[in-house]
Structure formats: structure tokens, C-alpha cells
Amino acid sequence: MRTPLAFLNLVHEKTRLGVAIAGVAFAVILVFMNLGFLGALSETAAAFYAQFNADLFLISPQALEITTATPFPIERIYQVAGVEGVEDVMPLYVNYIQWRNPETRENRAIFAFGINPDDPTFLLPELQSAQARNSLRRPNTVFFDRLSRPEYGPQETGTRTEADRRDVTIGGQYSLGGGFAADGTIIMSDQNFRRYFNPFPLDQISVGLIKLEEEVDADEARLAVMELLPEDVEVYTKEGIIARDRNYWINATSTGFIFGMGVAVALVVGVVIVYQILYTDISSHMKQYATLKAMGYRSGFLFYTVLQESVILAVLGFIPGFILSMILYQLTLTATSGTLPVVMTLTRFIFVFILTIFMCGISGLISVNKVIQADPAEVF
């Protein structure tokens, strides 16, 4: 039975092994957290659209994403209403408004949706009843997002406060989440939206929602609508506009760049740590390696031994790194009231494990050069 030389080399210095495992685990945690935030960034970009009862979306080409939507004439959705296969068209108004915490009296920007209560704009179950629609019709009444940050204050039905220095009453709640775009959201009727954002004219809408008949192909309908409308609006399917917003958040903002750079930095840190550990281990065992070479062991055997050490370090460091990352994911979900969906997926688990093996393997390849080039005569 072959002696597990690589494993015995690592456990010979337990303190050094502990430091190496901690270093790899630290790099694994950094990679998991940055990928988690990057994944949450991608998921929250789709959160709004997943709850819209629409198959096609009209939006101004000047809009970067939904929270920066630029108004365009409401006539555009009326033009679409006559297209074959279109079941319904609905206007949507969006903007930020200052919400006052009724307890602390501090103002904080919150993202507001304005809808016609008679339109089935959202798929949110809390908005489907006749009672909910009647509540939205009341003056100065809004529905409040349960996933909003606690800094906005009480969210119970009947709570009264101010929005943009006007009285406002919470008429109900729903669960949506604002993600990276907003710390909280509210939904109000189009008439209340006009009051709070006066002079915001209702003939200028932020997004046009188009509901298609069940058997109509969304891509074909999109082409038909595009031929009909002028260039002041763009037409997207639900998948298309989600991809558009994701591309903006990940590739066009510093947020996506920061998280992507965080993954790269974590890998560099891991490579450096593992290299230092392996290089130190090799240096302290140079006489033993030289003896093996003098006994006739080829460089390939020594190369394989060091590479084994790097893989063992990768596995031993990945396990605690993964466990701690799961704990941090849960803490993040709790701290953000569930608005950032930082969750572990099987794909991410496998990807980071492969990255860890690769990271430690690179360190092994760099450090093994010292063993291969060592001359037994010079060592002794």
C-alpha cells in the first residue's frame, strides 16, 4: 500500500495546515458572497416583471431600466390595442417619492407604482380582490410592500403618515421587494399618482403593458407591434426586458463590476495564500525531496505529490468556506428582510468548488517548480 506522502506532508505541521485551510476558506467565502450578490442583482432585475400581468412591454429607449423609465404618450398603448392577438393594454406609472417614517419622522425615498385599479396590472394575490381595488381607489391610499426596509416604519393597514408632505394611509400590503433598485415599494391608483406627483399628466406613461391572448406567440406579436409604433418606444417580450435590465445592472453599472472584481480578487488572494503555504512546505522538506530524486523517483512523481497537496488543501478549505457562506447567506437574507435573494444553488456550489480546485492547482503548479529544478548534489 502506497504511503500517502502528500497528506502526511500537510499534517506534519498542523499549525501550518490550519492556516492554509483558513486561507482557502476565506477565499471561498469571498467568492461565494460576491457571486451571491451578483446572482441577487440578476434575480432582483427580474422581480418586478415576474409580477406584471403582461406579455409585451413598451418602454422609452431613453430608459436605462424600469426605475429610470422616461414617460411617453399613452396613445402608444391605444395604438397597440387594435393589433390582432392583443387581449388588453394597461398603463403603468413609476417614480420615487419621499416617505416619512411615522415614528422617527425621517424621510426616505420609496419607489411608487401607479396603476388603474380596474386593470389586472399585477399578478400579486393581495391585489386581486374587489376590496383591494376599492381600497386603492380611495384618495391618498396606498398598498405597502412587506419586503420594504424597516427604516420606513410601521406597515400595518391603517397606518397614517406622509408622502411628499401629503397625508397618506396604508390600505393593504403585498410582497414584492425592491432589490438593488429600491429599498421599498408602494402601489397606488393612477389618480393618487397624479395627486402626489402633480403636475404628472396621466397621458404620459412610464411603461406600457400588453396582455396577449393565450395562444398568441409573444415574439411574433412583438414584431407586429414594432412595425406599428414609432421609434419613441421600444417593444420587448417579458424575457427580453428582463435580459435588458439584467444587462444594465451587471454590465453597465459599477455594482456588477464591483462584485465581478470581488470574485477575481478572491481568487488571487487564494492563489497567493496557497502558494505561500506550499512553497514553505516544499522549502522545509527539500532534503526529503532531494533524497527521493537521488533514489530514482522522477520529477513527475514529485510534481504529482505537490499537486495532490494543493487538491487536498482545496477540499479541506472548501468545506468550512461553504458552511460559513451558507450562514452568511442567511444573515444577509435576514438583514435585508428578504429583498436580496442571496441563495445557494447547486450550480454555484459546483462552480465554486471547481474554481477552488483550479485556484489551488495553479498555486501547486507555480510552487512545484522549486522541487523539479532541485539538484540533490546541491541540497546536500
Rank of each mutant, 00 (worst) to 15 (best):
N9W: 08
K14A: 08
T15D: 00
A20D: 09
V31P: 09
M33E: 11
L35V: 04
G36C: 04
T44K: 09
F52Y: 10
A54L: 03
D55F: 03
L56T: 01
L58H: 05
S60K: 04
A63F: 02
F72L: 10
Y78G: 03
Q79H: 12
Q79L: 11
A81I: 09
D88Q: 13
D88H: 14
Y93F: 15
V94T: 15
R100S: 09
P102S: 13
F111E: 07
F111C: 06
G114P: 03
N116P: 01
T121C: 11
F122L: 14
E126C: 07
S129N: 01
A130C: 04
A132G: 13
L136Y: 11
P139M: 06
F144V: 15
E151I: 14
E156S: 13
E156P: 03
E156Y: 12
E156Q: 14
V168E: 03
V168F: 06
G171Y: 00
G171V: 04
Y174K: 01
G177E: 07
A182K: 07
I186L: 15
D190E: 15
D190W: 07
R195L: 06
F200V: 13
D203N: 15
S206R: 06
I210P: 10
K211H: 05
L212F: 02
E213T: 13
V216H: 00
D217K: 12
E220A: 06
A221R: 05
M226W: 02
E227C: 02
L228A: 08
L228T: 08
V233G: 13
E234W: 10
V235F: 06
V235A: 10
T237N: 06
T237V: 04
K238I: 02
E239V: 13
A243G: 09
Y248Q: 07
F259Y: 14
F259T: 14
A266F: 11
V272P: 12
V272Y: 13
V274E: 04
V274D: 04
I277Q: 12
I277K: 06
D281A: 12
H285T: 02
Q288P: 02
Y289D: 02
G296T: 05
Y297M: 13
F303W: 07
F303T: 14
A314W: 06
L316S: 08
F318K: 07
M326N: 11
M326S: 11
I327S: 08
I327C: 04
L328W: 10
Y329L: 00
Q330W: 03
Q330M: 00
L333F: 02
T336R: 03
G338Q: 01
G338I: 01
T339I: 00
L340C: 01
P341F: 05
V342Y: 05
M344D: 04
I354M: 15
L355R: 01
T356A: 15
T356M: 14
V368G: 03
V368Y: 01
K370S: 10
D375S: 10
D375F: 04
D375A: 03
P376L: 05
V379E: 05
F380R: 11
